[in-house]
């Protein structure tokens, strides 16, 4: 039997509570939560640039659904090379199916057709489908126009990347969740000296958290400079 090297990992800390909701993302979050509760749209398509938070939202949706005793599956299509398209069979019987990075299968005929079939079956059932991509559905470079138009059929939202002000607020919120105190000045310092995409900033925060714990020191600019070697 074929081995399964795949590691489908859902981050424990990627919840709706830890997602900083900027003003532009308020509606999408409300719509998404309603959908998972079985009240709103059956199919939601989220799209955004790298670091905008699509994956976080999909992980959060899984946690949210699990808390409500719903059966969920999360598939990172970025790893489709390690998966078989047959994996999608039967998943429409679940309560929530989250497919991350649909753009990753663009041009792969077998996967596109499998996803097209999966979509059709989802529509015949009550399963909620949440799909993410790096571009608006109509702009995805899919070979199957049928699939592209179907993804554009449900409600779709752009996950807006955070502005610098939002990033500062998001960093502070994340720090608070970790029991860390992060001043505005320090957040601004990180923003002006480090990679500014949210992924990188949150990874830096995690690194600083560990460093602060092991050194038993508060976060200060000199300490941060020392840890990050900048």
């Amino acid at each position: 039997m074929q081995q399964l090297p795949l590691s489908i990992h859902i981050r424990d800390d990627a919840t709706f509570a830890s997602f900083y909701v900027s003003a532009k993302n308020v509606t999408l979050l409300a719509s998404l939560q309603a959908s998972i509760r079985g009240e709103g749209e059956q199919i939601t398509y989220l799209w955004g640039s790298e670091g905008a938070g699509c994956t976080h939202l999909l992980h959060a949706a899984c946690h949210f659904a699990s808390e409500q005793e719903r059966r969920v599956a999360y598939l990172p299509l970025r790893q489709h090379a390690e998966l078989a398209p047959q994996l999608l069979e039967g998943l429409h019987e679940l309560d929530l199916l989250c497919l991350d990075d649909v753009d990753a299968i663009a041009g792969n005929g077998v996967w596109e057709e499998a996803l097209f079939n999966c979509y059709n079956r989802v529509r015949e059932h009550t399963c909620r489908l949440l799909v993410s991509g790096n571009n608006a559905a109509t702009q995805l470079l899919l070979d199957l126009p049928d699939l592209r138009s179907r993804l554009a059929w449900g409600v779709s939202f752009q996950v807006h990347a955070l502005s610098d002000e939002d990033k500062i607020a998001a960093l502070q919120m994340r720090a608070k969740l970790r029991g860390l105190e992060l001043s505005v000045e320090l957040a601004q310092f990180l923003l002006s000296r480090c990679p500014r995409d949210s992924h990188a900033l949150f990874a830096i925060l995690e690194k600083l958290d560990h460093a602060s714990l092991s050194a038993q020191r508060k976060l200060t600019i000199p300490f941060v400079k020392q840890v990050l070697e900048i």
Partner: peptide
Amino acid sequence: RELEGALRRVIANAHF
């Protein structure tokens, strides 16, 4: 489909 998708977005925004 795209037309409906756009309308869904409008409805969701108005609703929330």
